[in-house]
Design a binder for these strands. Structure first.
Lengths: 345, 345
DNA sequence: GTACGGTGCACCATCGATTGTGCAATACGG
DNA sequence: CCGTATTGCACAATCGATGGTGCACCGTAC
């Protein structure tokens, strides 16, 4: 005869069997009463009520592992993000958490460091918990994830970084980049030497969809407004602090000072070049027009003005849930225009 | 005969029974092989290896709900925080996530908005997932949570806000507040009218342990260094933006300008009074010594200098895990000194 | 009085992994 | 060659909730 292998300390307090014994009914009746399915199972309302009240008295709490094993569901819902220490993704995490809880689901958030192996690992791991659905933000390799989740029949939505053939809710990077570039150009300093009179884009990964869209808009607007846009004006040096800082230093050295305009692609890069910027003379700082494609509340209180683009994290998340619930179209891309926070002077 | 109620779409791909059939062994042997318990169960190494390799081929992934049901464990681990949009708590969340994953556990983070009913709810909810342990940061009612988790025999640690009778890892608020107050006093402006020559503490909830400790240190240091500290110098107006802003405006009106020194208790309050501060004349801003008990990277790039205290989130989390693993003392408080980031000029 | 439909519930198989136990087959000692 | 010990594994109960099915019982109709 097998005994319960669990140490005496961690056993479940009350189960439906206890309640069944207490109320003189069967476990299946108790289950039906407590899960709300009692009508469909033709349980008398009085019976259901009695069971429910006894359950409350006994402090019953369902065992979700048992329920999940039977139903292959879990009320768990996963979110993959590259990192937490990034205002955009932590905002996203917060919106996700809130929406999930509204729906009675429990959020699991995993940071995968823009590493595709870590992404695959995390998906497998989450699958073993039988999560109900998966949200993927800023994936390094969306297709890879999509394959895994499709094979497991796991409903998945991509955020921020879209995935071909899968439901995706992303920021309209083209519009955002256009707005930001315009704002930067509109506030270009008037007196600036020929050598430094151009606008530069720094940061991001040109192979990723989001960056590519931003770069393309940037190029368009710069060409429209300033006549031309050379390849050297686009410095897609990734998201890492060190390379970004180095690129910024190199650019400044090359120009003999800060450029007239600077489009900073992503908050990570902004943070890392900030320490370089603030060391420049005050006068120089007020002679450059800076924009950042991402929002940081403290950005408006800095020593120099900054235009910022804020992605609508709340809307992105809501749209993603909507796509899961309502879109029968497996390949459905929704784009959401971001918001421009113009610099305050 | 019952059929599997689950829709055909969401069934498990490979189970230990499939592998058993494939390898011609029994499910129990497969389980032992895959879980690493095969030595203890006297399975031949070759048998175990063969099973493992077949499992890999078949793309086996364990069903954690089944495992959890049997063992009453889940490898899930919970963290309660008041909110996400707070640098300290989101740092904490990140450290927690990393440490959890290092230990092969899956983090579930719930924000409870400093609401004790939400806290109790969240604990009950997490309990129904059979989480292995619970971390509670900045709880509104630690004792309440402690009761629940103790009744359920759920190993619990408190962070930031300690709980009597429970394991707690908290910042050494006394030392931190002392350091911060000293830093503020050391950089007090020299020329300031008698009316505004005092140092004020604003924000926080005096009924909570953390704030109480900070207030007490503040009072001590101010008395030591400046001779006295009146009750009106302590404005514990909570953590909400609106009341904090109102309190700041009221104070400034009363003094006819900014005070000589300001100890801002918590980053929330800092953010909300920032919009007020930046509207003051530039000269006035450079004539006030400000400190914030919390860290925000952008704080050092503002238009005026700010001393900041950074809680060591990583260490707090590590210590908390340590307490769970090693401390048999159920009532064990560990304090961790925070770090002073002096203002840069 | 019999037939028939509906009501209200109990019974039991099932989800997949874990683990106490039983029992052949082999090894080993004398 | 027999008896005991060890090895290597299979069997089956179990965790708690779910849901298909069976079946009394009651009411109504003919």
């Amino acid at each position: 005869m097998s005994k319960d292998p669990r140490t005496e300390s961690r056993k479940q307090s009350t189960t439906i069997y206890d309640i069944a014994r207490e109320t003189g009914s069967s476990p299946s009746t108790v289950s039906a009463a407590l899960s709300g399915r009692w009508k469909a199972r033709r349980i008398r309302p009085e019976t259901a009520e009695r069971i429910i009240s006894v359950a409350r008295e006994m402090g019953y709490a369902i065992n979700r592992q048992a329920r999940g094993l039977r139903t292959a569901r879990s009320d768990l819902i996963g979110l993959l993000i590259p990192e937490h220490d990034n205002r955009f993704f932590s905002d996203l995490a917060q919106s996700f958490t809130q929406e999930a809880r509204k729906r009675g689901q429990c959020p699991i958030i995993i940071a995968t460091q823009r590493d595709s192996a870590a992404e695959a690992d995390a998906v497998q791991n989450l699958l073993s918990y039988s999560i109900d659905s998966l949200f993927v933000a800023g994936a390094a390799q969306p297709e890879n994830i999509h394959q895994l989740s499709e094979a497991a029949n796991l409903p998945t939505v991509f955020l921020d970084q879209p995935c071909r053939g899968a439901r995706s809710a992303v920021t309209d990077n083209a519009i955002g980049a256009r707005q930001l570039t315009e704002a930067i150009i509109n506030t270009l300093p008037s007196k600036v030497s020929v050598k430094r009179n151009k606008v530069y884009l720094i940061g991001g990964d040109a192979t990723l969809h989001a960056s590519a869209a931003r770069i393309s808009s940037f190029r368009e607007v710069v060409t429209e407004r300033l006549g031309q846009c050379g390849e050297e004006q686009i410095i897609a040096c990734g998201y890492q602090p060190a390379p970004a800082l180095a690129a910024m230093e190199e650019l400044t050295a090359r120009l003999g000072g800060l450029p007239a305009g600077l489009f900073v692609n992503s908050i990570n890069v902004f943070e890392s070049i900030l320490q370089f910027l603030v060391q420049r003379p005050e006068a120089e700082l007020h002679n450059v027009s800076i924009g950042c494609f991402d929002y940081e509340p403290y950005g408006q209180w800095l020593r120099f003005p900054v235009h910022m683009i804020r992605q609508r994290h709340r809307q992105l998340v809501r749209t993603a849930f909507d796509l899961l619930d309502n879109s029968q179209d497996e390949d459905h891309l929704v784009q959401i225009a971001p918001e421009l926070y113009p610099a305050t002077y």
